[in-house]
Amino acid sequence: MTLRQTQTEVGHVLDALNTISKGRMVMDWNEITSGTNPYVVMKTSNIPGKNVMEIPGLIFGSKHKPVTRIGVGMTLTESMIEMASAMKLDLIIVHHPVADAASSGGVPFADYLPLYNLALIEMHEAFHGLHPGLTLLHGHRKLATDISFCGIPGNVLHKGIALEGVHTAGDILARIDHWMGREIDVDLLEAERAIRGESTLQEATLSNPAKLLSGTPDRHVKHILHFFPHTGFSLQHLEIALQMYPETDTIIASISRVREDHEFVVLAKQRGLNFILGNPHSVEIMENGLPLAYALELLLPGVEVFLLRERITAVALRDVGHSKMVEYGRGMAEAHLVSAPSSHAVQ
C-alpha cells in the first residue's frame, strides 16, 4: 500500500517537537540572547574557535517551508546531507548539535543546504530524559533521572531497579544483544567481508559490544546506576552517586565507554560492584532516534519519516579490496604527495 503524503510546514514540525520535548524547544530566537531557555548551552573544551552553542530548534531554513518528507538522524555529516538530497527530503532533524563546516563537509550551511532545499533542526539536551528507553534496553526501570547531575548540563544519571526476569549481570548482557539484533550485524559484516574481499573489515557496533568489566555473569543485580562517561561524569560524581544510593550493586556505563583499567572500574572492583559497558554510541540512533521518529509519525500523520543511520567501518590499508581504487590511491600518494617538489613549485 502506498503512503498518502500530507504536506505540513517546518513550523508545525517544530510545534510537534515542542510537544514531544515538553516545551523545551527554542521557538523564538530571543530565547537564545535572553538566556531564558536552559537547554541553550555552550559546549567547549577551551580550544580556541572550537566551541559550539546547542540550540534546540530550527537552525537553518524557514518555518513556512513546506514539508512532506523528514529525515531523523543522530549526527549531521555531509554523507547524511547527500542522502537527504538523494531521497528528496525537506527537513533533517538531528539529535546532536550542529556547527557550520564541521557538520557540513567543511563549508557553511548557507552554501550547502540550499542546494537541496533542506531545512535543519537540532535537539540534544532538549531530548534527554524524555523516555525510559535506554534504561529499558539495559534491563532496568528508572526510578529517578537527573539530566544535569552536579550542575553540569547533559551529565545524565539514571537510578534504576532491575526489571522482572533480570536477575544477573549475564541477563543484562544477553538482553542488550537480543534487543539490538546483534546477530543481524554479524551476518551483515561477514557478508560484506566476503563481497569486498576485506578480511580485516570491522564495524563500529560489533567492535564495541556490551561487556562486563567487574563482577561475574552470574552475580546478582537489582539496584542500578546508569550514566554516560563522555558527558563529563567523573570519579567524584560516581562517589557522590554511590553516597546518594548506597544500595547500588551494579553500575552501567553506555553510549560512551571506558577501558578495563579506568578509575570507574577500579572503584567498582574495590567495592564489589558489577560494572557493565552497555550499548555504544553507534546505536544511539536506535535508542533515541527511533522513538523520536515514531513520535513525529504519530503527531504528523501522512508525513513520511525516515531514519538516517550511518554505519562506520574500518579496514587495514593492506586489505582494501577494490583494486582500481588501490591503484588510484597509491598513484596519487606516490606521484603528488610524497615525491620531491618540482623546481617550478611555488615557494
Rank of each mutant, 00 (worst) to 15 (best):
L130K: 12
R141H: 13
G106D: 05
L143Q: 14
F109Y: 13
A162F: 06
S85M: 09
S79W: 04
T75Y: 06
W179K: 05
M87N: 11
S62T: 09
P66W: 03
L91G: 09
T135R: 01
H131E: 11
W179Y: 14
I93L: 13
A162H: 02
M74V: 14
M83Q: 14
A162E: 05
V67S: 02
G170Q: 04
P56N: 10
V156C: 09
T77P: 05
T168Y: 07
A162S: 14
A101D: 05
L157T: 08
S62H: 00
D90C: 05
K142S: 13
S79D: 15
H178M: 12
F149D: 03
I55E: 09
P56L: 10
H131G: 02
A169W: 08
P108G: 07
I147P: 00
I161D: 03
V166G: 01
D171C: 06
S85H: 15
Y112L: 14
E122R: 06
L130Y: 08
T145F: 00
I172H: 03
T75A: 11
I176P: 04
R69Y: 02
A84L: 12
D146G: 02
N155C: 15
I161E: 14
H167T: 13
L173R: 06
L134I: 13
G160Q: 08
E122Y: 06
P108D: 12
E54Y: 00
A144S: 13
L113I: 06
I81K: 08
G73L: 06
K159W: 14
T68G: 01
F109Q: 02
I59S: 02
H128S: 10
T77D: 07
T145K: 06
L157N: 03
N117I: 03
A86H: 12
I121M: 12
M87P: 01
G129C: 09
V166F: 01
H158V: 00
S79E: 15
E54G: 15
H124V: 08
L137R: 08
T145D: 06
L157Q: 04
N51V: 00
P108M: 06
D146Q: 09
K88G: 10
L157H: 02
I93R: 09
E54I: 14
M180I: 15
L163F: 01
R141A: 12
P66M: 04
M180A: 11
L91A: 09
A169G: 13
N155Y: 01
S104V: 00
A126N: 06
